[in-house]
Computed example of a mutant assay.
Amino acid sequence: ELALALNEVHQDIVYVDFIDTYQNLTVKTMMIMNWLATYCPSARYAMKVDADIFVNVPYLVRYLQNQGESSQKDFITGSVINDGCPRRNQRSKWYLSKEAYPESRFPPYVSGAGYVFSIDLAKKISWASRYVRPIPMEDVYVGLCLHFLDVQPVFSRTFLPYRNLFEIRHLEYDACTYAQRIIVTGFTPSQLLNIWTDFQKDRLAC
């Protein structure tokens, strides 16, 4: 009901006909890719981000500008996981049977907490999904589609000092710490509102 009310005001919510459950995240993500490819072909980038994520928009914009033209085609970046393996324990939230995925390792993929990609990849990933068998873990599935397309995800990080710019751990709020990250995870909606208000004031002093 709240979503319907907000959409009446802003008209910025896209409704798609499927059941929105954790097991359907892959379906949801592929529908997003198809929608982006259809309605946003003139955009340069798109970002997938979970609802509990702080996003440092100014840093993100500067980061993408610094990447130059190389980031405008076949580009996807975030927190890259290079050593992912399927969980075979049936009690695991991320259980994946050998029938669904017989390989012992996943190709590199970006954490689903948040990632950014050049808009051309939306159409390519959507196309690849016709040939890549679906699994319920959407971030891994995007990685499988990237592997099919022979596209390597880019790990957004700095080395001196080392920072994962797409931080998939929860960090206690500090404006100067957050000013050096693109995302940080693990917040309630009210926390995000409070943090963003403070961040807008304090980040420029860092």
Rank of each mutant, 00 (worst) to 15 (best):
G114F: 06
T38S: 14
F106Q: 09
D52G: 07
Y63K: 06
R62M: 02
K93I: 03
Y101L: 03
F117H: 04
A113G: 09
I81L: 12
A100I: 00
D52T: 03
E99I: 12
F54S: 01
E99W: 03
L60T: 10
A113S: 09
P102V: 02
L96Y: 09
M30L: 15
S92P: 04
G68R: 07
V110M: 07
K93R: 04
D50T: 02
A43M: 11
G114S: 10
A37P: 05
C85T: 14
I76F: 03
V110G: 01
K98F: 11
S111P: 01
P41G: 04
Q90R: 13
V57Q: 05
K98R: 15
Y39E: 11
D52K: 01
L60Y: 01
K93H: 03
D83N: 14
I53G: 02
W35T: 14
S92T: 03
I53A: 06
A113C: 08
A37N: 12
Y59N: 01
E69M: 05
Y63S: 08
Q65T: 00
M30K: 13
R87Y: 05
A43G: 01
Y95I: 05
V110D: 02
K73S: 15
R105C: 12
K98N: 14
Y101I: 00
F117P: 05
T29V: 14
R105E: 14
Q65R: 11
V80A: 13
D52F: 03
V116L: 06
Q67P: 05
N34M: 10
P86N: 08
Y45G: 00
A113V: 10
C85S: 11
Y39I: 06
T26S: 14
S79W: 04
S71D: 07
R87C: 11
T77F: 03
V27M: 11
V27S: 10
R87F: 06
V55D: 01
Y101G: 00
Y101M: 00
V80H: 06
S92Q: 01
K93C: 00
V49R: 03
S92G: 04
G84C: 05
E99P: 06
C40S: 09
C40G: 03
L36Y: 12
D83K: 09
N89G: 04
A100K: 05
M47D: 01
M33V: 11
